[in-house]
């Protein structure tokens, strides 16, 4: 049994087949990337996993459980965290508050105990804050700890979003174009972090990405898509060399030779 599996997933929007019988599986502890031109259906896969859309056919199996019919917020509670292509942070809160919100699913609640701040609540609060501080150290966010998200540069916001996902202590982390909009140095730093997330924290990563150099560096296996269908999948090196992939990315070979 694999760790995470997409089985024959399909979804249509009106007449458009956004995903057509897509199959892939992600092994525990690896980085698995999905590449493809715009409109290939990469982010749609994420949105289906997160139950933003209903699948027309097929299922996602996570830890041997079918998660394609659960309610949206349950996906997070099962241990799947996510970041977004266009940052979705709590913009008027501080960095540390955003990270603490990532702890929501780990927080047990009892209104009266919370209002009275009893020993159990206090202990839980300390744990959550320690975890948030660990993440701040891990991602080098000390300088921004108490700043409001709105005022932070784009690259830092992207990092905070990864931090918030890590605060959830997920088993599977979905990263939607983590390197987009980041500077060269930020991207390099990011590839270190992702490797650390995989190796030190043991979190499996499923990633949508455009930056080929970045994928070459950190992705164990890759799947290429075009117009809602899988072109090929396998080890990253194989996929990046595949003629269909080259064609989808660079156009017909003649396009270069003609001139």
């Amino acid at each position: 049994m694999s760790f995470f599996e997409a089985k024959n997933i399909s979804i249509r929007f009106g007449g458009i087949r956004a995903l057509e019988l897509v199959n892939f599986d992600v092994k525990k502890g690896e980085v698995f990337s999905i590449i493809g031109p715009n409109g290939a259906g990469k982010t749609t896969i994420f949105n289906c996993i997160n139950r933003y859309y209903d699948l027309d056919e097929g299922a996602f199996i996570f830890n041997e459980k079918d998660i394609s019919r659960v309610r949206p917020h349950v996906v997070a509670n099962l241990g799947i965290a996510r970041t977004f292509q266009n940052i979705e942070l709590f913009r008027r809160m501080t960095v540390v508050d955003n990270l603490l919100l990532g702890r929501h699913r780990r927080r047990r609640s009892n209104l009266f105990a919370e209002a009275l701040f009893t020993g159990f609540v206090r202990k839980q609060e300390i744990e959550n804050r320690e975890k948030a501080e660990d993440i701040i150290d891990f991602l080098d966010l000390q300088a921004y700890r108490d700043q409001i998200i709105e005022n932070l540069p784009y690259g830092v916001q992207k990092t905070v979003e990864i931090g918030r996902a890590l605060a959830m202590e997920p088993e599977l982390l979905l990263l939607d174009e983590p390197s987009s909009g980041m500077t060269l140095e930020e991207t390099e730093e990011l590839s270190f972090w992702i490797t650390d997330i995989k190796e030190e924290l043991g979190i499996t990563i499923l990633m949508v990405e455009h930056n080929m150099k970045f994928i070459k560096e950190i992705s164990d296996r890759t799947m290429a898509m075009s117009f809602g269908e899988v072109i090929t999948q396998g080890t990253t090196a194989e996929v990046l060399e595949h003629p269909e992939v080259l064609k989808a990315y660079l156009g017909e070979e003649d396009a270069f030779t003609e001139n």
């Binding site: 949206p72 349950v74 979705e88 942070l89 913009r91 008027r92 990532g102 609640s109 209002a115 701040f117």
Partner: peptide
């Protein structure tokens, strides 16, 4: 201070993100 109270504040700022926090 309460879990649901904080969740409500978060939801008012970003519903989508709130759902993905569980």
């Amino acid at each position: 201070f309460t879990k649901m109270g904080v969740a409500m504040r978060a939801t008012s700022q970003n519903q989508l993100a709130a759902v993905y926090m569980g």
